[in-house]
Design a binder for these strands. Structure first.
Lengths: 348, 348
DNA sequence: AAAGAAAATCAAATCGGTTTTGATTATAAT
DNA sequence: ATTATAATCAAAACCGATTTGATTTTCTTT
């Protein structure tokens, strides 16, 4: 078996409790004994047992990550690694580790969260999604367990700490941008309507149109999965309309890429025939042909700030809930121009 | 405080040890008492404390993930999320969780591993990389702690369980493919030479040339980082040679994309002027213009099998080490053709 | 030098389980 | 009826730390 605190105590001729105090650098121990104990630790190659420490101190210095059920979708979207990097960095900063379990179905995930939380494996959790009527969120709230949501919670907004972009505003801005370019037939390609991010972006899109006095067309609003395939599906429907749109607001870069591909196959040119603007600004956006105009939502910061605020909440349980809005920025590339009625030109 | 095994014992009028046995479904307990205890657990909403259980049973059912130090590079490459998905699925299958810590420098990572291992936070670890003279690997071996390497270990191959592709062979095959197309000036764009994967692929490339009686040219071999930028750097050098290569073996799709970009800027056509073949076959390979011919290395399986064999090793400590080779396959797309001396045509 | 205050250290209880040991009861064999 | 055997459960020890309350040592002060 490994070296324990008792071995160290014996070697330094002190009580185990004293060794524990030395580890915690408690001022109640004199410098002299501290020195003595540290030498013993050094000589024995002692490393404290995290599990035992967790049990005694009721804290694990680990934070749990909860993914949405459609794991394969999440993992495929470049959003995920970036937010994970942010999380990881934010956690590492305060010496916290990340703990992950996954599951195929919603029930498996729920079960995993229960085990993780009730089992005391983590000090807090981060929800990497926000959707309507989430059992997991309800459980965490009910249990009053520290957690942070990435994205805007669907309800009880004031009682939940979350980190999000202002997606409503961002969507409104991009739609206004298209309107300013002269577009009137603007479609919206969103993801699953159960996700609040989709709802927010849709609302922003609608608001912009309404403000500009442009009528909303039902057929112009479609919802697919946040994947390339989703974008492909969406386009086929839109293009076959009597009066196809001249511009598309697409809720995710990966979808936009699918859109781009399909349009290419159909011989429709971007941005000459159709303008496209999308969200997230992942690396792909820069590399597509044409490069996509996209809203940079600072994915890394989304993760980084989530980790930070969760840890803050863990260490200050009585602090009030917080809401953190990460800024966004439209990155203009080459996928948007004025519609054909005017002189087609690339806007930069 | 939460409900403990004692509360359950009291309610079911049995000893705590009996409850523990019921949890473990020990045959020494009669069905009748089991039923009684289970009812009590149900009523109280009991969930076992993982930490206490870990401490007593000396097992955590968690496996640690060790990333290379250049975290940002790893996280950017689409290789990572895919292998993580495989790991996650392989772990979940046997009800193991994943545990991650990251660090900026090599020393931080090493320190993290020590804490994780000595602190008993995980039952085993997976190294997501394989490089020369790795302190972490040396420590794990010395300590005789269960671990699995993704990639071929640089030394002591027979004493280490690892999961890898046959990168030597894959590289040889792609090079032979290019040779068969008529290429003679074939360059190799690899990653960091400290990584065994680079070495293996380079050796395969060299072997193919040697077998075909083609002289190796030093200037044709360059090494950059596994990123888009790496590919861009590489190309500039190669193109400025007196006798630039007509075909490129690129060790990573992301690099190949950088290569593609730069060639495009320079007005050099792929595959007409230069053929490109790369490794990994991530989603990007399919979406680039032209779509890349790439070696599919089954990244998901790499992760999945790693998790599986680590768990097997944890649960059967006396079993001998294993070597698992994941098959690969060349996926032919549009980035390779015969060189200009012959009729340029796309090979499918 | 004696008494009291302050500082340093120690022993024991605790965290929430698992596992071993031993006692008790029920069943089978002689 | 008596003993051997098996089945069942209770009690205690343990995993490796933290933390509380008691005790010893050292330092002031009169």
């Amino acid at each position: 078996m490994a070296i324990t605190i008792k071995d160290v105590a014996k070697m330094a001729k002190v009580a185990p409790s004293t060794v524990s105090r030395v580890i915690a650098n408690n001022p109640r121990i004199s410098e002299k004994t501290k020195q003595k104990v540290r030498e013993a630790m050094e000589q024995l190659g002692y490393h404290p047992n995290f599990i035992a420490r967790s049990l005694a101190s009721q804290s694990t210095r680990a934070i749990g990550l909860i993914m949405p059920s459609s794991t394969d979708v999440v993992f495929q979207n470049p959003f995920f690694p970036t937010v994970l990097r942010g999380l990881s960095e934010g956690a590492h900063e305060r010496h916290y580790a990340l703990h992950m379990t996954t599951g195929k179905t919603d029930d498996e995930i729920y079960e995993g969260v229960i085990q993780m939380v009730q089992g005391g494996r983590v000090d807090g959790v981060i929800l990497l999604y926000s959707k309507v009527e989430d059992k997991v969120l309800a459980f965490l709230k009910e249990r009053d367990f520290p957690f942070v949501v990435i994205g805007k919670p669907f309800s009880d907004e004031e009682e939940i700490t979350y980190v999000d972009n202002n997606n409503f505003r961002a969507a409104k801005e991009v739609t206004e941008y298209l309107i300013k370019l002269g577009h009137k037939q603007i479609a919206f390609v969103g993801g699953n309507l159960n996700l609040t991010v989709t709802v927010e972006r849709l609302l922003g899109y609608e608001k912009a149109l309404r403000d500009a006095g442009i009528e909303l067309v039902n057929e112009y609003i479609v919802h697919e999965e946040f994947l390339k395939e989703g974008g492909q599906e969406a386009v086929r429907g839109l293009i076959s309309l009597n009066k196809p749109p001249t511009a598309l607001v697409v809720a995710d870069d990966l979808m936009a890429l699918g859109v781009l591909n399909t349009l290419d196959e159909l011989g429709i040119k971007v941005p000459e025939d159709v303008s496209i603007i999308s969200f997230n600004n992942v690396m792909l956006a820069e590399m597509s042909r044409p490069p996509l105009t996209s809203v940079d939502i600072n994915i890394f910061d989304l993760g980084f700030e989530s980790a930070r605020s969760l840890i803050y909440r863990i260490e200050n349980p009585r602090e009030p809930v917080k809401r953190i809005i990460i800024p966004h920025k439209i990155v203009k590339r080459c996928s948007c121009s004025s519609p054909l009625t005017e002189e087609p030109k690339i806007v930069t």
